[in-house]
Design a protein around this nucleic acid. Structure first.
Lengths: 333, 333
DNA sequence: GTGAAAGCGCTAACAT
DNA sequence: ATGTTAGCGCTTTCAC
């Protein structure tokens, strides 16, 4: 096994200089390489199995065509991550993975790695950007690297973000339930400290008032995104002197907990209790739950589009783009 | 914004040569750098915010500490991908993403990108490695790059792989059902052309015979991993003159289809029909289905371990490592 | 239209 | 124990 062929080998074999090889492979802004030379170079490259070295290219040219992607790859995140990778790949960019950590030191280690690899930009999926002391915000800003946050929002609004219409989704859920005749609608919210959690709860409250119903704080119980939260919250809601006839859950896992609590109490769904989740995740599919689809592919598309705008210039102010959601009727409402 | 500091800057500021900086940052095999110099260098680096450039390092040293990961990031794959990334990160390796494609030309484009970025190795999650004409096999072999396949197996056995004990899982499912008194047990298999699908079907057949039951080909209906397959397969199974009292499905989505078909026919689960799925996916959790846990974290651990063995030498013959599975009893059996 | 040559930031012999 | 130096493979200005 001999060494990998370099552009020097190609140049020699084609009887040109390495500069010309570079011109042929990258397309030059100035002069044009005549088709004859172009062909000679390509043939030589083909013949010796030449493959350009991105490291050298990055070192010399200053751009790596690498984008760092910070994500936990879990549930909804993975559904955004995959199309993001696809979009980037179509534009000639590759994705270097990093992980959203709860431990900031670990997160820093990963982040440093991305920078050492000279990524041209960053895409961060979810991950608690609202925390006011989150160091990653500072690091990103200090590094001056193009960055887009997806499915979350940085508190001070200094970094671009793409989110789904969480309030709109909550409103759609409530309106749907109201149209089915429900007048007392409970909510099991997500985490107060998470953007989507807050937004959906605000959307719930607004929609309740918009519908002319009374907002009752007792109708909001629990805080979290797992089955247990939904379960416990629902037990409390149903123990109320005047219990709700419908519950809007902050996400589908939470909604699954609602479902279990209700059925454990012998309630029939949707007759005794209607349920609407959020996210169109697989537990919703499994139970044929009414839920809100967040269109992860569209979020990915918008996010990458935004990233390329940002890569063009860092001067523009940061913006938040909102992707519409869709209510998906199921058998639980 | 001035240029990024390089090791030259650090060397100057610390009053040493770039070689020494390199020694300090990488730990040398030969001589030791005294603590005094070490500290001077580190201080200087800290002060000017030096960050080593991986591109230069890779170019000069020949190793990038980059591993290409080929995955679709869907469902089960994402659950393996995430811990693999974690393991690699702990060992100082970063992950470059690529996508398993059905279109081989797209897959080639991605694969070429990985090689251009000079990845040190490859991890491929699932993705149809059994197809005898799959070009990726040839490319990997030709490139002579260390590679481990996870949750699949290359047909000719020339590439290392890590799989879960698919046959054992099937056997555990059947034994479980037999112990519950079932004597006619149906199967809705996965795809014949996919390793896990074949293995689970073989495991089913073996277990049936081992249990002293008669293997009836009519009891195997359908082929696939989605709800529709499970649904249609079950309709056929239940229309049999002598229908099964239990069904083992190739995966949990498939099992969900089984569940729906049964309930649509008014059957009670598990009394009228018992169901066992495979994978411990979220639809199983949602329905509290009996299923087989594949321990994705362990698969990831073993895969990375294997990859490092392979990176050490390409001389050893390729092996297949099998990770045990666990039956998770639920309410559907 | 094409070539010569100076980097890009770092590593690894080889010297000292 | 540390410095010197020749690359690693490519881009890019500036000549010709």
């Amino acid at each position: 096994m001999r060494k990998k062929p370099s552009c020097i080998d190609v140049a020699e074999m084609a009887g040109v200089s390495t500069a010309t090889v570079s011109y042929v492979f990258n397309g030059r802004r100035n002069a044009n390489v005549p088709d004859a030379t172009k062909r000679r170079v390509m043939d030589a490259a083909e013949r010796i199995g030449y493959r350009p070295n991105r490291l050298a290219k990055g070192l010399a040219g200053g751009k790596t065509h690498l984008v760092g992607m910070v994500t936990r790859l879990d549930t909804f995140d993975a559904r955004i991550a995959s199309p993001i990778r696809g979009e980037l790949s179509n534009r000639g960019y590759q994705v270097l993975l990093a992980h959203n950590q709860t431990h900031w030191e670990l997160e820093q280690r990963d982040f440093e790695q991305l920078l050492e690899h000279q990524v041209d930009a960053l895409i961060c999926i979810s991950g608690g950007w609202g925390a006011p002391e989150r160091p990653l915000v500072t690091w990103v800003l200090e590094a001056g690297i193009p960055c887009v946050i997806v499915n979350d929002r940085e508190a001070s609004g200094r970094i671009d973000s793409v989110v789904s219409d969480n309030r709109g989704g909550a409103k759609a859920a409530i309106d749907h339930l109201v149209s089915r005749g429900h007048r007392r609608i409970g909510h099991v919210p997500g985490l107060e400290c998470v953007f989507t959690g807050r937004e959906r709860e605000i959307g719930y409250a607004e929609a309740i008032r918009d519908a002319g119903l009374e907002y009752d704080p007792d109708l909001v119980q629990g805080e979290g995104y797992d089955i247990k939260t939904g379960y416990d919250g629902t037990r409390k809601l149903l123990a109320l002197p005047n219990p709700p006839s419908a519950i809007f859950a902050a996400n589908d896992a939470n909604a699954l907990g609602v479902y279990r609590a209700a059925t454990d109490l012998g309630l029939r769904i949707p007759d005794d209790l209607a349920i609407v989740g959020f996210g169109n995740e697989r537990e919703a599919e499994a139970l044929q739950m009414t839920t809100i689809d967040q269109h992860p592919d569209e979020m990915a598309r918008v996010a990458v589009e935004r990233l390329f705008v940002r890569m063009r210039t860092m001067e523009l102010p940061a913006v938040t783009q909102t992707v519409p959601v869709t209510l998906l009727p199921g058998r639980t409402s």
